[in-house]
Design a binder for these strands. Structure first.
Lengths: 347, 347
DNA sequence: ACTGTTTATGTGTTCGAGCACATTTTTTTG
DNA sequence: CAAAAAAATGTGCTCGAACACATAAACAGT
């Protein structure tokens, strides 16, 4: 199983490597005879260009900018940064430079400002985390106009200006939570759906999760759960939840649609007599504390680290080896409990 | 953020690229003055050699042989083959050729014969799936003697002749199953542990899973489960399980330590009055059928496809870019139910 | 048949690292 | 101090693909 090079093929076909090259790249200026001969030969031996040589020849440097919420402000984004850093290290020896830009995920103007800055850099690609739905659409238009490739994670904007989306099916994510609830919460009990965030933002992932969750439970034949939805700021949670649980109630499960589930678990701990199951999102240190002692029953892992890492990997391999980028890459949705969280944190 | 090359450094240091090269590779024959100057410069600009150029220069072809049980005989190994095929396609343009060799997982001599064959090929590396514990150890010794790199998946042999193991923590795997059982099976009920396989083989993964499973349940304060273990050939299962369930019993959960869990689910379906929860392994088509309709409650995904793919990836990147191979890579242990299996099958 | 023009084919250089070999400089020795 | 030996440094080619440029063959028009 020898590896054929252009030179080999040229010799076999009795032409020069220039001609072979022209055939391969369909640059024309080749006689019918030569074209046939070379084409046939290429097929026969199933020629595979050496991607390393190709890449060396094209050896440019590429510049990718990452735009994400500041992990100092919201720790949810820390793993995202880790994924980016892994990618930086992996590709720095290949002539790919990656810069991170942070914005305050509570302020749209911060997001817009950072994007202005990045646009000035005119990078080859950007990876943006579109927590602001409307603003993102505008920003992406600008990138497209400047021929900057746009990849997104976390929040699927349905928009054709985007080259790649890496993330999860959020409706399905809600369904998974629902199926787990069904298994651990008795029939006819009350289940709370809590949207919890420090700030209100116009991203849609919480809504999609709720939709999937309700959708699953609605179609059950014999388990009439009583569902109640609350959209809360973190500051209102304490009062609201305490007043709910202090009064007579039938609550037996809580589904928190964000990574802030630990603050719910903390409050529920004050009511040891109520047997309340909790399902929420993501492997924050705070959450892991509660899943370890089973105060949280299940976490659903959105794997932000892997999302960002994979997204950059796709871009890098596109630049280096011309590997095509899938329009959408849906990652598996991991179910995490007290025994398997470890495997998802240490990679 | 310019990318420096050896030539750049040579110019900056006022020496030739040969000297720089000698410094980088510590080949000696460099004056102290030149050495200091170049070393300092290298540090200052944090020189990163262009791995693509390096790889091109070294451009050899590498040969990897994969030795695994015949997927035609045991479908469990089909995804393994898929992972290998993905790797073949990914790396064929990089001068890495990969050949697969199958053995009958019921016959040790078949395993030995295939290994003889592979040894004659003198490949650069082999990926073996050590279902036969003792025989594998012997075989690995031979590879080591011939300077063939040995990677393993699926079954951790504790042996220093192995360069890399990609797999899961099997004891933990059992603990995960136990935690799930605890959540869905009422206290004081009976739980069966069933080791089920077509043949008896001397691999140890079933034992490790059982160990983890029992270990978790034993340490529970208030849930006295009654555990019973059965080691069965597939042919004996039908009679044994029917007779068990036809008689008065308290069985409420079954943990099957292999991928053959579908045959247990099939039988349990005949007893709709008993509410028996089932947990088993792997996303075989047969198993997915049962998890879809909740006849199986949870599957634990050992991700054989990813295991084999990752293992080859490690070898390839070692050969191409000199990336070091971790001695052991433990993959996350995925919990799968009727709603998230999809994400693990389509990748 | 001889230019001029189009079309086809071949040659040589580049990318960056790595290494063999050639050349220069320094040191040793009679 | 010259010759020989050792040490240091520099030069030039290779890996395979890509492309610019040079050359050659084919064809058209007068």
């Amino acid at each position: 199983m020898k590896k054929y090079t252009i030179k080999d093929i040229a010799k076999l076909a009795g032409v020069s490597k220039g001609t072979v090259d022209r055939v391969i790249h369909k640059r024309g200026k080749v006689s019918q005879t030569a074209l046939d001969k070379v084409t046939k030969l290429l097929e026969e031996i199933d020629y595979q260009p050496n991607l390393i040589a190709r890449s060396l020849k094209n050896s440019k440097s590429y510049h990718i900018c990452v735009i994400q919420p500041d992990p100092e402000i919201d720790p949810y984004w820390q793993p995202c940064t880790k994924g980016v850093n892994d990618a930086i290290n992996e590709y720095k020896s290949f002539g790919i430079t990656i810069d991170s830009y942070y914005f305050n995920h509570a302020e749209t103007h911060s997001f817009l400002k950072v994007n202005e800055e990045v646009l000035k850099q005119s990078p080859d690609a950007v990876l943006i985390t579109p927590v602001f739905h409307k603003e993102s659409i505008e920003v992406i238009k600008k990138y497209n106009a400047n021929n900057v490739i746009v990849s997104t994670i976390n929040d699927p904007l349905e928009l054709n200006g985007i080259t790649s989306y890496v993330g999860q099916d959020l409706i399905q994510s809600g369904r998974i939570a629902a199926r787990l609830m069904e298994m651990i919460v008795p029939k006819n009990k009350e289940i709370l759906i809590i949207h919890l965030d420090e700030v209100f933002n116009n991203s849609i992932h919480m809504q999609l999760k709720e939709k999937g969750f309700k959708n699953y439970l609605k179609n059950l034949s014999n388990s009439n759960y009583n569902l109640k939805t609350y959209s809360l700021q973190q500051s209102d949670l304490d009062e609201k939840l305490h007043s709910l649980l202090n009064n007579p109630n039938n609550v037996s499960g809580i589904f928190v649609t964000t990574s802030k589930v630990y603050s719910v678990a903390k409050i529920v701990q004050d009511f040891p007599d109520l047997d309340i199951k909790i399902i929420g999102y993501d492997l924050l240190d705070e959450n892991i504390k509660y899943i370890k002692n089973n105060a949280i029953d299940f976490l659903i892992n959105q794997n932000p680290k892997h999302q960002s890492y994979l997204c950059i990997t796709q871009l890098a391999e596109y630049f280096l080896f011309d590997k095509k980028i899938p329009k959408q890459k849906l990652l598996p949705i991991d179910i995490v409990n007290s025994e398997n969280f470890d495997g998802y944190t240490n990679d």
